[in-house]
Design a protein around this nucleic acid. Sequence first.
DNA 1: CGAATGACCTGTGAGC
DNA 2: TGCTCACAGGTCATTC
Length: 290
Amino acid sequence: MPELPEVETVRLGLAPAMEGHTLTHVETRRGDLRVPFPKDFVARTQGRKVRHLRRRAKYLLADLDSGETLVIHLGMSGRMSVYAEGHQRKLGNYVYQTPPNGAGHGKHDHVVFETDAPARIVFNDHRRFGLMALVETAHLEQDKLFRGIGIEPLSDDFNAAFLAKALVGKKTPIKSALLDQRLIAGLGNIYVCEALFRAGISPKRLAGAVKKEKIAPLAAAIRKVLRDAIAAGGSTLRDHAQATGDPGNFQHHFLVYDREGLPCKNKCPGTVKRIVQAGRSTFYCPKCQT
DNA sequence: CGAATGACCTGTGAGC
DNA sequence: TGCTCACAGGTCATTC
């Protein structure tokens, strides 16, 4: 499911229920995710206070007062849902769902946290591509999960000059290069398609062959599409939900993604095409993306 | 070395 | 109604 905007949306919604709060109770239901939980997961998380809730690439990072960081990846279909009761439902700018019967006991509810917000937070992931891990906070960047992860596209260091340097000489299609987390962290299939469309670049063009004058528009398009998507609560195709349970809205602003056969939105006579690159669908307009 | 492919899972919608 | 197939936001190991 989630690319950077979806993860960031979840983080924002999770923060009032988690940040500064103690995990009063932790339960794991089934451990056979892509990466199994550590055996002592409960012992290392229960009773700990969450100092900060951050994001790096598509990972959520909850820094615990034990010196460890709880690392959460939502895979393709993961959700973090917050439930609360009565007037506690309203925390910060968010209104959470009241827990339905059996909240936390669903078929694919893998972890349940209770916090002293008070709130119940349920990690649900039916495809089980997600993961939860515990890593020493001080050594996070050296950990296997984060070593080699690329630049944050919304950071000040990401700009046309950086992008030009990152793409130079690359013989892989620009679509694949932008999906490569070692170059830029957080882009996924949707936002790569959208950014390339907005910058008027063909996804098939080799990364090293992107025209100089298109680099700055591409960097700008990447940042703008990510920011706009975060503001819209991310994109919900099927699985993504915010921490409140609400879907995102950015799918209504797609210009190419999932628009195969529909007219190009660039007031050009083209029709959106779908091709497969590296096993993933790419949507683009062959007329105005060159 | 870098780049393509398949594997990992379950669920859903389309087509018959 | 029910079957089968294709496909879905990501990452990782393996092969060329």
